[in-house]
Amino acid sequence: MLKKVSPILLLFLCNCCASQPSFTLTDNELETSVTETLKYYLYYPPEYELNPEKNFPILLFLHGGGEVEEDLNPNERIPPPSLILQGKKFPFLILAPQNSYSKSWWNTRAIKQLLDTVVAENRIDKKKIYLSGISRGGGAAWEMAVQYPETFAAMAVVCGMTPLPYASWINKKMAIWVFHGEDDEVIPVEESESMVKKLEEFGYDVRFTKYENVGHDSWSKAYATEELYDWFLEQSLTN
Results as ranks from 00 to 15, higher is better:
residue 98 Q to G: 07
residue 147 Q to V: 05
residue 99 N to P: 09
residue 109 R to M: 11
residue 58 I to Y: 08
residue 223 Y to H: 02
residue 229 Y to P: 08
residue 170 I to S: 08
residue 66 G to F: 02
residue 65 G to S: 13
residue 222 A to G: 01
residue 53 E to N: 09
residue 181 G to Q: 05
residue 82 S to D: 05
residue 7 P to R: 15
residue 152 F to W: 06
residue 226 E to M: 09
residue 55 N to H: 08
residue 108 T to S: 11
residue 110 A to W: 08
residue 38 L to W: 12
residue 66 G to M: 03
residue 178 V to E: 06
residue 64 G to N: 03
residue 210 K to L: 14
residue 30 L to Y: 13
residue 113 Q to G: 09
residue 199 L to Y: 04
residue 182 E to Q: 10
residue 39 K to P: 10
residue 146 V to P: 08
residue 125 D to K: 11
residue 62 L to E: 03
residue 1 M to Y: 06
residue 234 E to V: 07
residue 209 T to Y: 05
residue 211 Y to I: 02
residue 200 E to M: 08
residue 152 F to V: 07
residue 238 T to L: 11
residue 155 M to C: 13
residue 93 L to V: 02
residue 136 R to D: 07
residue 42 L to S: 12
residue 32 T to F: 10
residue 48 Y to F: 14
residue 208 F to V: 01
residue 187 I to G: 00
residue 215 G to Y: 01
residue 184 D to Y: 00
residue 5 V to M: 06
residue 28 N to V: 11
residue 214 V to T: 14
residue 213 N to V: 04
residue 69 E to K: 13
residue 193 E to D: 02
residue 7 P to V: 10
residue 205 D to S: 03
residue 166 Y to L: 00
residue 20 Q to G: 01
residue 153 A to G: 14
residue 116 D to E: 15
residue 189 V to Y: 00
residue 6 S to L: 07
residue 222 A to S: 09
residue 224 A to R: 14
residue 204 Y to A: 11
residue 85 L to Y: 11
residue 201 E to N: 09
residue 11 L to K: 15
residue 187 I to E: 00
residue 66 G to I: 03
residue 53 E to Y: 00
residue 48 Y to N: 10
residue 152 F to R: 07
residue 72 L to V: 12
residue 181 G to P: 04
residue 84 I to W: 01
residue 18 A to R: 11
residue 63 H to I: 01
residue 64 G to H: 03
residue 106 W to P: 06
residue 182 E to Y: 03
residue 117 T to I: 14
residue 78 I to H: 02
residue 87 G to F: 10
residue 55 N to D: 05
residue 212 E to D: 08
residue 105 W to Q: 14
residue 125 D to E: 05
